[in-house]
Nucleic acid binder design. Structure first.
Lengths: 413, 413
DNA sequence: AAGCTTAATTTAGGTTATGAGTTAAGACGT
DNA sequence: ACGTCTTAACTCATAACCTAAATTAAGCTT
C-alpha cells in the first residue's frame, strides 16, 4: 500500500530537528524549557538538537526571561538571515519576483508587465530569469544562499511527470508546458537550488493558512475568486493535491446542470456565475452599464449600484451570493473543513459586500452538522500574497527536512 | 502546526514492524530476501524484525522456493488465526455482525432484522450485543482474542468528541447518539477490546479499496448509491474524514440551485436526482408504474422498461446519468483521484445499465486534464461488504501499530 | 566430497533518545 | 554579605535501534 515510510535512526534526528525548527518558526521565540513538552522530546535531547541547530547557524538566542527565583531561560528563535527564499507570481498581467528572508519579510522585488498577448512561454521564462537576477543583485544575496524558488502559475500543475513539473493552463493557452525544465535550462539559477512550482491559487492559499485567516487550522479551504474561480485545499495541515496535483478545481463544480456556459466548455459551473468575469457579463446582460473600465473598477461600480439600492444590481448580487453559498456548501459537505476562507480580489470585494448572505446560503445548502462547525470568513492577505505563498513552498520543504541539506534525494523508487 | 510527530527510537521499531506486517499482509507470502528492498530495511533488520514478529505469533512460514543453486528462501505470511476481527453493519433494515480471521475470511455471522420503527437506540444496541455474543460462541473464539470491533452506521460519525464516537443520523432519526459509550456500557465486550465506529458508506469504501476495485489506488473516491447517496474518500491511501470526520457527504452536493427538494431540506442535491428513492419518485411523477414492491425490485422494473425502449424510462435514465456524471465531475475536479468507483446496490444496478453514459457526462462536465487521468468503474464488492469494511478499521489499526499492543495510549495531550 | 551459490543469522560499530545527576544563574531571606 | 532555594541547561551512562560486514545454513553441481 505504501512503500518507504520511515527507516533508520537517522531519520529520527531529522524528524526531531524538524519538530523543533517548526515549533520555533511558527510560535515565536521559545525557551528550551518550553520546547521540550511542545515537541515531546526530553530536555536532554532538546539541548542536543538545539546545540546542533545553533552550530548550523539556523537558530539564535533572543534575550531571556526571568523565571521567579531561578536561572532565567534564554529564548531561541530561527535566524531569519540564515537563508533566503524567492517567490514568483506568474499572474494574468505580469510576472512578479520577490526575495524574502526566512521570516518571509520582503527584501527586494521586481515586476515585469506581460502584455495581453504575452503568454508566450519564452517571454515568461525570460522575465522570470531577468527579475530573479535583479532581486538577487538588489539585495546583494548570492544565489547559492537560496533555499529554493517557488513559482505560482495559473492553471494545473502536474508534478507527477518525470521531467519535472508541467503546466496545463487552459485559460492562458499553455498546454503541457514543461516549465520546470525550461526554467532550469534558462540558466537563471544554480543547479542545486530547488524549484517548486504550483498553482498560484494554491500558493496564495498556503500563505493564508500560514500567516492569514487560516492560522492554526488543520483542515481548511481557501476559496479564490478573481477573473476565474479556484480553491486551495488544506488537509491535515498540508496542501492537498490529489493524484496529479490538480485537486481543488472548485470553479468548475457544477451548480446548474445544463446551466450557463462556462469558459471551460461545460455548462453550469460555479465559475460561470460568481467569477468577476461572469458577474459582469450577467450585469451587462440585464442591461447594467459596464463601461470599458477594467474588471476591478467595473465590479466596484456594480457594488456601488447595489449600495444605492439599484434593484437590478441587488437582485444580481443576491443571486450571486446564493450560488456562492451553494458552492461553499459543496466544499463543506465534501471536505468538512474547520474554516473556509474567501479570498482573491473579487472574492474580497464581493465578500465584504454580502458575506452574511453567503453564510446563510451555505447554511441552507449544506448539511447541518458540518456547516455548524465550519466558519466562513474573508481572507486577511491581499492577492499580492501569491509570492509569499510561493516562497512558502521551499520553506515548507526546508522545515520538513529539519534544515538539513537534501543529501542524495535521488534514491528513487 | 502539528505537535507530536515522531519521537523516540522505539517508534522506529513500531514503524518497521508495521511496514513488514503490511507488506506481508497485502502482498502475499514473501521471503525475507524480498522483504528487505520492499521495506527499505537491511537484511539484518528484516531477520530481527521477522524473528520478533514470529515470536509474537503474528507470522508463520509458508513453504519455500528454490533459488537456483543456493539455499531456498522460506516464505513468510501473516498468521491468519493469530487474532480475530468483528465487523458490524447497522443497516437500514437489519443489524449484521460477522466474525473474521485476520485474512478477513468469514468465520461466523449473525443477523437481526430491524423493523421499520426499529431505529430505537436501545434496540439496536441490544441486537449488536446479542449478535456479537452469538458469533463468538458459534466460532468458539474468546472475546479476548479480538483485535477490535468495527461498526458501520448510517449518518455522520463525529469522532472528535471526548466521550467516544457520536452518531448523527439525520435520516434515521439519530441525533447525537453516543454509540461508543452506549455499546461500552452494554457490557457486551471486554474493556480492552477497542471499538471503531464509522459511517457505513466509508467502511464499504475502505473494503473496496483494500480488496475490491480500488486496490492499489492512493487517491480514490467510492461513490455509494442506495436509497441515499454518499461517498468514501481515500487520500494518500487512507480514509479522509475532515475536521469532524463527516467529509464525503457527496449526496448533498448541489447540482441544481433551487432544484428538487431533497430529504435533507435543501434544494437541488445530487441525492434528489440519482438516489434510488429519488429515481423512483421521479418515475412515479411522470406516470411510470411503481407498484408497491420494495425499492430494489422497483428499480429493476424501471431498468427493464428502459431496456424495452420505453421512452419515458429511457429519458429518465438519460437524465439520471447526466446528473450522476455531473456529480462525479465534481469529485474529479475537487479531489483529482486516480479512480472513481461506483457502488451501493442502486449504484451497481444503475451503473451496469448506463455506465458509458455516466462516463460521457462526467467527461463533459469535468476539466479535461484530471478527467482524462481518472477511471470510472463499478465496485467489485456487493453491499454486504460493509461488515468487511468495518472489520477493516481495527485491522488497519493493528497493522499501523505493527501488531503490538496499544500500551498506555492514554498519554493524551 | 569439495566447491559454489544463495539465504538467513550473528556480530561489531555507530546514532540516537532518555533520564539521572551536575553545573549555571539568579532571587530571597536573614 | 552570605547561604539557601529555585529553575535552567548541560553531561554522561545506558539502552534501543539500524547498518554493514562477516558468518553460518542449506542445497546444488561436478
Amino acid at each position: 500500500m505504501s512503500d518507504r515510510e520511515k527507516r533508520t535512526v537517522r531519520d529520527l534526528r531529522r524528524t526531531n530537528r524538524s519538530a523543533v525548527l517548526r515549533k520555533l518558526y511558527f510560535d515565536g521565540p521559545l525557551s528550551r524549557q518550553e520546547l521540550a513538552p511542545a515537541t515531546g522530546l526530553s530536555s536532554g535531547s532538546i539541548s542536543n538538537v538545539v546545540a546542533e541547530l545553533t552550530a548550523d547557524g539556523l537558530l539564535e538566542e533572543a534575550g531571556s526571561v526571568d523565571s521567579d527565583g531561578g536561572r532565567p531561560r534564554t529564548l531561541l528563535r530561527v535566524a531569519r538571515r540564515c537563508a533566503y527564499l524567492i517567490g514568483v507570481d506568474v499572474g494574468e498581467t505580469r510576472v512578479r519576483v520577490e526575495l524574502f528572508d526566512l521570516a518571509l519579510t520582503e527584501l527586494a522585488r521586481a515586476e515585469r508587465p506581460l502584455a495581453r498577448y504575452g503568454y508566450d512561454v519564452e517571454r515568461v521564462i525570460g522575465h522570470i530569469r531577468g527579475a530573479l537576477a535583479d532581486v538577487l543583485h538588489d539585495a546583494n544575496v548570492a544565489a547559492s544562499r537560496l533555499l529554493g524558488v517557488g513559482v505560482g502559475v495559473p492553471g494545473i500543475v502536474d508534478r507527477s511527470s518525470p521531467g519535472g513539473a508541467v503546466v496545463h493552463g487552459q485559460t492562458v493557452g499553455w498546454d503541457a508546458v514543461p516549465l520546470e525544465s525550461l526554467l532550469r535550462a534558462s540558466g537563471g539559477l544554480p543547479e542545486e537550488v530547488p524549484l517548486f512550482i504550483d498553482n498560484g491559487a494554491k500558493t496564495l492559499g498556503q500563505a493564508e493558512v500560514w500567516f492569514g485567516a487560516g492560522r492554526g487550522a488543520r483542515h481548511a479551504v481557501i476559496a479564490l475568486i478573481g477573473s476565474g474561480v479556484g480553491a486551495c485545499i488544506i488537509t491535515d495541515g498540508g496542501l492537498y493535491g490529489g493524484a496529479h496535483s490538480s485537486a481543488g478545481e472548485w470553479g468548475h463544480t457544477v451548480l446548474q446542470v445544463g446551466g450557463r456556459l462556462c469558459r471551460c466548455g461545460a455548462k453550469g459551473c460555479l465559475e460561470a456565475y460568481v467569477s468577476a468575469e461572469a458577474v459582469l457579463e450577467r450585469w451587462a446582460e440585464i442591461g447594467g452599464d459596464v463601461g470599458d473600465a477594467d474588471e476591478e473598477t467595473a465590479l466596484a461600480t456594480l457594488l456601488a449600484h447595489a449600495d444605492a439600492a439599484d434593484e437590478k444590481a441587488v437582485a444580481l448580487l443576491d443571486e450571486t451570493a446564493e450560488y456562492l453559498g451553494a458552492g461553499i456548501a459543496d466544499l463543506v459537505n465534501l471536505f468538512n473543513p474547520e474554516r473556509i476562507i474567501i479570498s482573491g480580489w473579487a472574492g474580497l470585494l464581493l465578500g465584504r459586500h454580502f458575506l452574511p448572505a453567503v453564510r446563510r446560503s451555505a447554511a441552507a445548502y449544506a448539511l447541518r452538522h458540518p456547516v455548524e462547525r465550519t466558519t466562513i470568513e474573508l481572507g486577511l492577505l491581499g492577492p499580492d500574497a501569491v509570492t509569499v505563498g510561493a516562497a512558502t513552498l521551499p520553506l515548507a520543504d526546508f522545515l520538513a527536512r529539519g534544515g538539513r541539506g537534501r543529501e542524495s534525494a535521488t534514491a528513487g523508487h
